[in-house]
Simulated assay, not measured.
Amino acid sequence: MLRAIPRQIALILFALLILGPLSVVFFATLKTTQELYGEPLALPATPDLGNYARLFESENMIVYFLNSVVVTLGSVFLILLCGSLAAYAISRMGGWVAASLFAFFVAGLLIAPQVYMVPLYTIVDALGLVDSLLGIILVSVAFQIPVCVMILTGFMRGLPRDLLDAAFVDGATEWTTFRRIVLPLTRPALATVATFSFVITWNDLLFPLLFLRTDVNKTLPLALLEFRGQYLTDYPLLFSGVIVATIPIVIAYVFLQKYFIEGMTAGSVKG
Protein backbone atom coordinates (compact mmCIF):
# COMPACT_ATOMS: atom_id res chain seq x y z
CA MET A 1 0.00 0.00 0.00
CA LEU A 2 2.76 2.42 0.93
CA ARG A 3 4.63 1.60 -2.27
CA ALA A 4 1.68 2.87 -4.31
CA ILE A 5 1.70 6.32 -2.69
CA PRO A 6 4.74 7.69 -4.63
CA ARG A 7 3.24 6.36 -7.86
CA GLN A 8 -0.10 8.04 -7.14
CA ILE A 9 1.61 11.31 -6.28
CA ALA A 10 3.59 11.15 -9.53
CA LEU A 11 0.39 10.48 -11.51
CA ILE A 12 -1.37 13.41 -9.83
CA LEU A 13 1.53 15.74 -10.58
CA PHE A 14 1.62 14.55 -14.18
CA ALA A 15 -2.15 15.10 -14.51
CA LEU A 16 -1.81 18.63 -13.13
CA LEU A 17 1.05 19.27 -15.53
CA ILE A 18 -1.22 18.32 -18.44
CA LEU A 19 -4.46 19.87 -17.18
CA GLY A 20 -2.85 23.19 -16.24
CA PRO A 21 -2.05 24.43 -19.78
CA LEU A 22 -5.26 22.90 -21.12
CA SER A 23 -7.30 24.83 -18.57
CA VAL A 24 -5.55 28.07 -19.49
CA VAL A 25 -6.31 27.47 -23.18
CA PHE A 26 -9.96 26.57 -22.52
CA PHE A 27 -10.67 29.56 -20.28
CA ALA A 28 -8.92 31.80 -22.80
CA THR A 29 -11.59 30.88 -25.34
CA LEU A 30 -14.20 32.40 -23.01
CA LYS A 31 -12.43 35.77 -22.83
CA THR A 32 -12.06 38.76 -25.08
CA THR A 33 -8.69 39.64 -26.54
CA GLN A 34 -8.31 42.62 -24.19
CA GLU A 35 -9.19 40.51 -21.16
CA LEU A 36 -6.76 37.78 -22.16
CA TYR A 37 -3.84 40.18 -22.60
CA GLY A 38 -4.74 41.96 -19.36
CA GLU A 39 -5.15 38.89 -17.15
CA PRO A 40 -3.99 35.81 -19.06
CA LEU A 41 -4.15 33.40 -16.10
CA ALA A 42 -7.31 34.68 -14.43
CA LEU A 43 -10.74 33.15 -14.82
CA PRO A 44 -13.01 34.91 -17.32
CA ALA A 45 -15.03 37.67 -15.63
CA THR A 46 -18.01 37.01 -17.90
CA PRO A 47 -17.69 33.69 -19.77
CA ASP A 48 -18.74 34.13 -23.37
CA LEU A 49 -19.05 31.58 -26.18
CA GLY A 50 -18.83 34.32 -28.78
CA ASN A 51 -15.40 33.19 -29.95
CA TYR A 52 -16.80 29.82 -31.00
CA ALA A 53 -19.69 31.48 -32.81
CA ARG A 54 -17.29 33.91 -34.49
CA LEU A 55 -15.07 31.00 -35.45
CA PHE A 56 -17.75 29.40 -37.62
CA GLU A 57 -19.39 32.63 -38.79
CA SER A 58 -16.39 34.58 -40.06
CA GLU A 59 -14.10 31.70 -41.03
CA ASN A 60 -14.55 28.73 -43.36
CA MET A 61 -14.09 26.37 -40.45
CA ILE A 62 -16.71 23.92 -41.65
CA VAL A 63 -14.88 23.54 -44.97
CA TYR A 64 -11.52 23.15 -43.22
CA PHE A 65 -13.01 20.68 -40.75
CA LEU A 66 -14.54 18.55 -43.51
CA ASN A 67 -11.25 18.61 -45.44
CA SER A 68 -9.44 17.29 -42.38
CA VAL A 69 -12.10 14.59 -41.93
CA VAL A 70 -11.75 13.47 -45.57
CA VAL A 71 -7.94 13.42 -45.45
CA THR A 72 -7.78 11.67 -42.08
CA LEU A 73 -10.42 8.99 -42.70
CA GLY A 74 -9.16 8.34 -46.23
CA SER A 75 -5.57 8.02 -45.01
CA VAL A 76 -6.44 5.76 -42.08
CA PHE A 77 -8.52 3.45 -44.30
CA LEU A 78 -5.76 3.06 -46.90
CA ILE A 79 -3.07 2.67 -44.24
CA LEU A 80 -4.99 -0.14 -42.55
CA LEU A 81 -5.86 -1.81 -45.85
CA CYS A 82 -2.40 -1.72 -47.43
CA GLY A 83 -0.53 -2.22 -44.17
CA SER A 84 -2.56 -5.24 -43.07
CA LEU A 85 -2.20 -6.92 -46.48
CA ALA A 86 1.56 -6.35 -46.50
CA ALA A 87 1.94 -7.51 -42.90
CA TYR A 88 -0.08 -10.67 -43.57
CA ALA A 89 2.06 -11.51 -46.60
CA ILE A 90 5.29 -11.00 -44.65
CA SER A 91 4.08 -13.02 -41.67
CA ARG A 92 2.97 -15.91 -43.89
CA MET A 93 5.93 -16.09 -46.26
CA GLY A 94 8.85 -16.36 -43.88
CA GLY A 95 12.43 -16.84 -44.98
CA TRP A 96 14.81 -14.26 -46.37
CA VAL A 97 12.20 -12.82 -48.74
CA ALA A 98 9.92 -11.89 -45.84
CA ALA A 99 12.88 -10.54 -43.87
CA SER A 100 13.95 -8.41 -46.84
CA LEU A 101 10.44 -7.03 -47.33
CA PHE A 102 10.11 -6.25 -43.64
CA ALA A 103 13.48 -4.49 -43.66
CA PHE A 104 12.40 -2.53 -46.75
CA PHE A 105 9.32 -1.17 -44.98
CA VAL A 106 11.10 -0.49 -41.70
CA ALA A 107 13.82 1.41 -43.57
CA GLY A 108 11.19 4.06 -44.22
CA LEU A 109 11.38 4.97 -40.53
CA LEU A 110 15.06 5.88 -40.76
CA ILE A 111 14.59 9.01 -42.87
CA ALA A 112 12.76 12.09 -41.59
CA PRO A 113 10.17 13.54 -43.99
CA GLN A 114 11.97 16.90 -43.99
CA VAL A 115 14.89 15.24 -45.79
CA TYR A 116 12.95 14.22 -48.90
CA MET A 117 10.53 17.14 -49.19
CA VAL A 118 12.05 18.42 -52.45
CA PRO A 119 11.95 15.10 -54.38
CA LEU A 120 8.56 14.34 -52.82
CA TYR A 121 7.16 17.65 -54.06
CA THR A 122 8.62 16.95 -57.51
CA ILE A 123 6.86 13.57 -57.67
CA VAL A 124 3.52 14.91 -56.44
CA ASP A 125 3.74 17.83 -58.86
CA ALA A 126 4.51 15.48 -61.76
CA LEU A 127 1.41 13.47 -60.90
CA GLY A 128 -0.70 16.64 -60.89
CA LEU A 129 -1.72 16.16 -57.27
CA VAL A 130 -0.44 19.44 -55.82
CA ASP A 131 -3.22 21.38 -54.09
CA SER A 132 -5.50 18.35 -53.87
CA LEU A 133 -6.75 16.29 -50.95
CA LEU A 134 -5.89 13.10 -52.80
CA GLY A 135 -2.24 14.11 -52.93
CA ILE A 136 -2.19 14.69 -49.15
CA ILE A 137 -3.87 11.33 -48.57
CA LEU A 138 -1.36 9.40 -50.70
CA VAL A 139 1.61 11.15 -49.11
CA SER A 140 0.27 10.48 -45.61
CA VAL A 141 -0.27 6.81 -46.45
CA ALA A 142 3.25 6.42 -47.83
CA PHE A 143 4.72 8.13 -44.78
CA GLN A 144 2.87 5.99 -42.20
CA ILE A 145 2.86 2.58 -43.89
CA PRO A 146 6.22 1.56 -42.32
CA VAL A 147 4.89 1.97 -38.77
CA CYS A 148 1.72 0.11 -39.66
CA VAL A 149 3.60 -2.82 -41.21
CA MET A 150 6.01 -3.04 -38.29
CA ILE A 151 3.22 -3.19 -35.67
CA LEU A 152 0.91 -5.52 -37.59
CA THR A 153 3.66 -7.90 -38.68
CA GLY A 154 4.81 -8.38 -35.11
CA PHE A 155 1.23 -9.06 -34.03
CA MET A 156 0.36 -11.42 -36.89
CA ARG A 157 3.49 -13.47 -36.34
CA GLY A 158 2.15 -14.25 -32.88
CA LEU A 159 -1.13 -15.68 -34.14
CA PRO A 160 -1.57 -19.47 -33.71
CA ARG A 161 -0.13 -21.12 -36.81
CA ASP A 162 -2.30 -24.20 -36.32
CA LEU A 163 -5.45 -22.08 -36.56
CA LEU A 164 -4.47 -20.74 -39.96
CA ASP A 165 -3.40 -24.18 -41.20
CA ALA A 166 -6.75 -25.60 -40.08
CA ALA A 167 -8.54 -22.97 -42.15
CA PHE A 168 -6.61 -24.04 -45.25
CA VAL A 169 -7.39 -27.69 -44.56
CA ASP A 170 -11.09 -26.78 -44.48
CA GLY A 171 -10.76 -25.24 -47.94
CA ALA A 172 -10.37 -21.55 -47.04
CA THR A 173 -8.42 -19.38 -49.46
CA GLU A 174 -5.77 -16.87 -48.43
CA TRP A 175 -8.27 -14.03 -48.78
CA THR A 176 -10.92 -15.83 -46.73
CA THR A 177 -8.40 -16.65 -44.01
CA PHE A 178 -7.17 -13.08 -43.95
CA ARG A 179 -10.66 -11.56 -43.86
CA ARG A 180 -12.46 -13.94 -41.51
CA ILE A 181 -9.71 -15.12 -39.17
CA VAL A 182 -6.67 -12.84 -39.23
CA LEU A 183 -8.43 -9.46 -39.24
CA PRO A 184 -10.76 -10.24 -36.28
CA LEU A 185 -7.85 -11.57 -34.24
CA THR A 186 -5.72 -8.55 -35.17
CA ARG A 187 -8.38 -6.03 -34.10
CA PRO A 188 -6.38 -4.65 -31.11
CA ALA A 189 -3.33 -4.02 -33.29
CA LEU A 190 -5.51 -2.46 -36.00
CA ALA A 191 -7.03 -0.14 -33.41
CA THR A 192 -3.54 0.83 -32.26
CA VAL A 193 -2.48 1.69 -35.80
CA ALA A 194 -5.78 3.47 -36.49
CA THR A 195 -5.45 5.64 -33.38
CA PHE A 196 -1.82 6.45 -34.12
CA SER A 197 -2.53 7.26 -37.77
CA PHE A 198 -5.62 9.30 -36.91
CA VAL A 199 -3.71 11.54 -34.50
CA ILE A 200 -0.71 11.97 -36.82
CA THR A 201 -2.80 12.75 -39.90
CA TRP A 202 -5.30 15.00 -38.14
CA ASN A 203 -2.55 17.12 -36.57
CA ASP A 204 -0.27 17.11 -39.61
CA LEU A 205 0.84 20.56 -40.71
CA LEU A 206 3.97 19.84 -42.75
CA PHE A 207 2.40 18.14 -45.77
CA PRO A 208 -0.64 20.47 -46.07
CA LEU A 209 1.69 23.45 -45.77
CA LEU A 210 3.88 22.00 -48.51
CA PHE A 211 1.22 20.90 -51.00
CA LEU A 212 -1.99 22.88 -50.44
CA ARG A 213 -2.49 26.32 -51.94
CA THR A 214 -6.16 27.36 -52.15
CA ASP A 215 -8.49 27.97 -49.20
CA VAL A 216 -11.02 25.43 -50.43
CA ASN A 217 -8.52 22.59 -49.89
CA LYS A 218 -6.94 23.70 -46.61
CA THR A 219 -7.08 21.41 -43.61
CA LEU A 220 -7.80 22.53 -40.07
CA PRO A 221 -4.19 22.78 -38.75
CA LEU A 222 -3.16 24.80 -41.80
CA ALA A 223 -6.19 27.08 -41.46
CA LEU A 224 -5.31 27.86 -37.85
CA LEU A 225 -2.13 29.56 -39.06
CA GLU A 226 -4.29 32.29 -40.58
CA PHE A 227 -5.28 33.46 -37.11
CA ARG A 228 -1.75 34.74 -36.50
CA GLY A 229 -1.19 38.41 -37.24
CA GLN A 230 2.03 40.26 -37.95
CA TYR A 231 1.65 42.55 -34.94
CA LEU A 232 -1.29 41.10 -33.00
CA THR A 233 -2.71 37.58 -32.76
CA ASP A 234 -6.33 36.91 -31.84
CA TYR A 235 -5.51 34.22 -29.28
CA PRO A 236 -9.08 33.65 -28.02
CA LEU A 237 -10.14 32.85 -31.58
CA LEU A 238 -7.01 30.78 -32.18
CA PHE A 239 -7.49 28.81 -28.97
CA SER A 240 -11.13 28.22 -29.89
CA GLY A 241 -9.96 26.65 -33.13
CA VAL A 242 -7.48 24.50 -31.20
CA ILE A 243 -10.24 23.24 -28.90
CA VAL A 244 -12.47 22.41 -31.88
CA ALA A 245 -9.58 20.59 -33.58
CA THR A 246 -8.90 18.56 -30.43
CA ILE A 247 -12.45 17.23 -29.99
CA PRO A 248 -12.26 14.51 -32.73
CA ILE A 249 -8.99 13.20 -31.31
CA VAL A 250 -10.46 12.91 -27.82
CA ILE A 251 -13.57 11.16 -29.15
CA ALA A 252 -11.51 8.72 -31.21
CA TYR A 253 -9.29 7.84 -28.26
CA VAL A 254 -12.25 7.37 -25.89
CA PHE A 255 -13.78 4.77 -28.21
CA LEU A 256 -10.51 3.07 -29.17
CA GLN A 257 -8.51 3.26 -25.93
CA LYS A 258 -9.39 -0.31 -24.88
CA TYR A 259 -8.14 -1.80 -28.16
CA PHE A 260 -5.23 0.67 -28.26
CA ILE A 261 -3.91 -0.50 -24.88
CA GLU A 262 -4.46 -4.16 -25.77
CA GLY A 263 -2.64 -3.72 -29.06
CA MET A 264 0.34 -1.97 -27.51
CA THR A 265 0.59 -4.63 -24.78
CA ALA A 266 0.28 -7.53 -27.21
CA GLY A 267 2.71 -5.97 -29.67
CA SER A 268 5.33 -5.65 -26.96
CA VAL A 269 5.47 -9.42 -26.37
CA LYS A 270 4.56 -10.82 -29.79
CA GLY A 271 7.46 -9.50 -31.83
Rank of each mutant, 00 (worst) to 15 (best):
V193H: 05
I261F: 10
F255M: 08
V216D: 09
I9Y: 12
I79Q: 03
K218H: 04
T265H: 14
T153V: 13
D234C: 04
I251D: 13
Y259N: 14
T29K: 02
V193R: 05
P236R: 06
F196V: 14
A166F: 03
A142C: 00
V115T: 10
R180Q: 09
R187D: 02
L152R: 09
P47I: 02
D215M: 06
A172F: 03
V216Y: 06
I12Q: 12
I200N: 06
T233F: 12
L185I: 01
G263F: 01
P188Y: 10
L78I: 11
A87P: 04
L163M: 10
L183K: 03
L22S: 10
V147M: 12
R187T: 09
D170F: 10
Y37F: 15
G74Y: 08
L183H: 06
K31P: 09
C148E: 05
F227D: 05
P21F: 10
F227E: 11
V216F: 03
V97E: 01
I200P: 00
V182P: 02
I261L: 13
D162P: 03
G94N: 11
A15I: 07
F155P: 06
L224T: 06
E174G: 02
A89Y: 06
I18S: 06
L205K: 00
S58H: 11
I90N: 08
D48M: 01
L222M: 14
E39D: 14
R180Y: 09
F143P: 00
S84D: 06
L66Y: 12
L19S: 10
V139F: 05
I200C: 07
G128E: 08
L13H: 05
A4C: 01
Y231Q: 12
G94R: 13
V141A: 13
P146S: 09
I111H: 09
V97D: 00
P184G: 00
P21C: 05
V24E: 07
G267C: 07
M150R: 10
L256H: 02
S91T: 08
R213Q: 09
D131K: 04
G83S: 05
L80Y: 11
L256F: 13
M61P: 04
L85M: 13
A15Q: 01
R187Q: 04
E39G: 12
A10I: 04
K258M: 01
F239Y: 14
V106W: 00
G20K: 00
D165P: 00
R228K: 15
G229E: 09
L36N: 11
I62A: 14
T246M: 12
C148F: 00
Q8A: 14
L19F: 15
S140D: 05
N203L: 10
S91A: 15
L41V: 02
